[in-house]
Amino acid sequence: MKHKSLFKWTLDALTSFGQVPLPILFSNQFMKKYTAYNEWNEWVAQSNQNIITIKDFEVEDESWTQFIQHSTAFSSGKEMIEAAEEFYFSQRPYGPFPII
């Protein structure tokens, strides 16, 4: 339970300061594990979408949803974002802020 509250705190802190840039959130490790691509830029280029923010993932568009379903292990953009955030914070439990 302590890990989840730390995760939530870090996520809330990032939300208040700004979000993790998508190319960092979707690390090469994440992309290799959960998609048919090796890196974020390659995947975005194939999507033919203008993906700049997390909100761009949540667009209700049939072709976008189909692309996600066919090229990743996820059924929606929201599900992919949630998994990426969880993966990111499992790798960096304190977020981008080092403990001094």
Score class of each variant (00 low, 15 high):
residue 1 M to N: 14
residue 2 K to V: 11
residue 2 K to W: 14
residue 4 K to V: 09
residue 4 K to N: 15
residue 6 L to T: 00
residue 6 L to D: 01
residue 7 F to L: 12
residue 7 F to I: 05
residue 7 F to A: 08
residue 8 K to R: 11
residue 9 W to V: 12
residue 9 W to K: 14
residue 12 D to A: 13
residue 13 A to W: 08
residue 15 T to I: 06
residue 17 F to E: 09
residue 17 F to R: 13
residue 17 F to K: 10
residue 17 F to W: 13
residue 18 G to E: 10
residue 18 G to W: 05
residue 19 Q to D: 06
residue 19 Q to F: 11
residue 20 V to Y: 01
residue 20 V to I: 15
residue 23 P to N: 05
residue 24 I to F: 04
residue 25 L to K: 03
residue 27 S to P: 02
residue 27 S to A: 13
residue 28 N to I: 03
residue 28 N to H: 10
residue 31 M to A: 06
residue 31 M to S: 08
residue 32 K to F: 00
residue 32 K to Y: 03
residue 35 T to E: 01
residue 36 A to T: 15
residue 37 Y to E: 07
residue 37 Y to C: 03
residue 37 Y to K: 12
residue 37 Y to M: 10
residue 38 N to M: 11
residue 38 N to R: 09
residue 38 N to L: 11
residue 40 W to C: 00
residue 41 N to Q: 11
residue 42 E to K: 02
residue 42 E to W: 02
residue 43 W to R: 07
residue 44 V to W: 01
residue 45 A to D: 07
residue 45 A to T: 07
residue 45 A to C: 09
residue 47 S to Q: 06
residue 48 N to D: 03
residue 49 Q to V: 06
residue 50 N to R: 11
residue 50 N to K: 13
residue 50 N to A: 09
residue 50 N to Y: 09
residue 51 I to M: 08
residue 51 I to D: 01
residue 52 I to V: 04
residue 53 T to L: 02
residue 54 I to W: 01
residue 55 K to P: 03
residue 56 D to K: 06
residue 56 D to M: 11
residue 58 E to Y: 12
residue 60 E to C: 08
residue 60 E to W: 05
residue 61 D to L: 07
residue 63 S to I: 08
residue 63 S to F: 04
residue 63 S to C: 04
residue 64 W to N: 00
residue 65 T to Y: 07
residue 65 T to C: 10
residue 66 Q to V: 08
residue 66 Q to D: 10
residue 67 F to G: 00
residue 68 I to G: 00
residue 70 H to T: 14
residue 70 H to F: 09
residue 70 H to E: 14
residue 71 S to Q: 09
residue 71 S to H: 03
residue 72 T to N: 02
residue 72 T to M: 09
residue 73 A to R: 12
residue 73 A to I: 07
residue 73 A to S: 15
residue 73 A to E: 14
residue 76 S to G: 10
residue 77 G to V: 00
residue 78 K to Y: 06
residue 78 K to Q: 07
residue 79 E to C: 02
residue 79 E to M: 08
residue 80 M to R: 01
residue 82 E to T: 07
residue 83 A to V: 04
residue 83 A to S: 15
residue 85 E to H: 14
residue 87 F to I: 06
residue 87 F to D: 10
residue 88 Y to E: 04
residue 89 F to Y: 01
residue 90 S to F: 03
residue 90 S to D: 08
residue 91 Q to Y: 11
residue 91 Q to S: 14
residue 92 R to S: 05
residue 94 Y to K: 05
residue 95 G to C: 14
residue 96 P to R: 12
residue 97 F to D: 12
residue 97 F to Y: 13
residue 100 I to S: 12
residue 100 I to E: 12
residue 100 I to D: 12
residue 100 I to V: 12
